[in-house]
């Protein structure tokens, strides 16, 4: 079991009347890629800023490597940050930007140039050292920011929505690269994002934030397949809930239940229900063709709505179900999970 490198206890931060972070306890394990996931205003960035030292908590404590750093300013903490807007210094060349942290720590010139060049190479930007940040594209600036942080060999790298400003293709490419770089350097990454796909793709573990509190902590598989609350079910993936009377009618049990759309099959009304499956009658309200798959929004006879997703593995005929068609939705009982409201 990996040791704990960051231990946050009872972290609380208020902005005026708003409680941005409300008593958060969090252990970050050495070497892991941990993602803080949540909608804007959920407190994830504030938690990251309190770990970096940019915000002082109103209550609670932060330990890095077993040392309490709650009152230590950012320059005294062995962590480095990649900022959402990159925050590259516009008056310094790329290489000078990367050298800055080493220069401040009085690393000799020869060593610091060598380390900066190596860092530049590690983000695949050899030969860009003499350029000004303004001459780089968004993706390149992103990598310089990463190199500027990594060159200091911090114990933990904090990343504050670093891919938010990039377009989709570049973002997906950087997700893969970031993960590779993290494996290569072996540094603990704490990554903030509001993008569930990003979180699922990159993380060893995900912390889902909601209204300043941790809603769930687990591996991507746990968070996606077994969402703990209705909020997590809705935020990570599509909200697909059976609740109240509908749940009682279909499942024979009350409560709120989550079924992921890709677990649901859409079949004709006369199809037979396999053993170990639940089935519910409904009418197709909407058919959305999204290339790789087709989404069906189905109004249930017992009330409520479920979404089902089918892979378009055969042809582009969207499974043959049309808008307004009466259908039967079936899924295996092990794919339904009770969530808290």
């Amino acid at each position: 079991m990996a040791s704990v490198i960051i231990r946050a206890r009872g972290l609380t931060r208020r902005f005026g009347d708003v409680v941005a972070v409300d008593g958060v306890n969090l252990d970050v394990l050495e070497g892991e890629f941990l993602t803080l996931l949540g909608p804007s205003g959920s407190g994830k960035t504030t938690v990251l800023r309190m770990i970096a030292g940019f915000e002082r908590p109103d209550a609670g404590s932060v330990e890095i490597g077993g040392v309490d750093v709650t009152g230590v300013p950012p320059y005294g903490r062995d962590v480095n940050t990649v900022f959402q807007d990159y925050a590259l210094f516009p008056h310094m060349s790329v290489l000078k930007n990367i050298e800055y942290g080493l220069k401040v720590k009085k690393v000799p010139r020869a060593e610091r140039t060598e380390r900066a060049r190596a860092a530049l190479a590690s983000v695949r930007l050899e030969g860009y050292g003499d350029r000004a940040p303004s001459q780089l594209s968004g993706g390149q600036r992103q990598r310089v920011a990463l190199a500027r942080a990594l060159v200091n060999r911090p114990r933990v790298l904090l990343l504050d929505e670093p891919l938010g400003a990039l377009d989709l293709k570049l973002r997906e490419q950087m997700q893969v690269e970031l993960k590779e770089i993290q494996r290569e350097v072996g540094i603990t990454f704490v990554f903030v994002t509001h993008d569930q796909d990003e979180a699922l793709t990159m993380s060893d573990r995900i912390v889902v934030f909601n209204e300043g509190r941790i809603a769930q902590l687990g591996t991507p598989l746990e968070v996606y397949e077994h969402p703990a609350t209705a909020f997590v079910a809705g935020f990570v993936g599509t909200s697909n809930l059976l609740a109240g009377e509908a749940a009682a009618a279909v499942l024979g049990r009350p409560g709120t239940w989550s079924v992921r759309p890709e677990k649901i099959r859409v079949v004709g009304r006369d199809a037979s229900v396999e053993p170990g499956c639940h089935a519910v009658r409904g009418t197709v309200r909407e058919v959305v063709y999204v290339g790789m798959s087709t989404r069906f929004v189905v109004d249930l006879e017992v009330g409520g709505t479920l979404m089902a997703v089918e892979q378009n593995s055969d042809a582009a005929n969207s499974g043959g179900h049309l808008r307004g068609e009466p259908v039967l939705l079936t899924w295996r009982t092990e794919h339904e999970y009770e969530v808290q409201n």
Binding site: A52, G53, F54, P73, P74, Y75, V79, N80, T81, F83, Q84, D85, A87, L88, F89, P90, H91, Y100, G101, V104, K105, R148, A149, N152
Partner: peptide, 24 residues
């Protein structure tokens, strides 16, 4: 974020003023 970045990279306030704020 420019000031945060400087502090994050180990610079105290005086250093940040000289190396980041004044040149900008």
């Amino acid at each position: 974020s420019m000031l945060d970045a400087s502090a994050d990279l180990g610079a105290r306030n005086g250093r940040t003023f000289r190396s980041v704020v004044l040149p900008i």
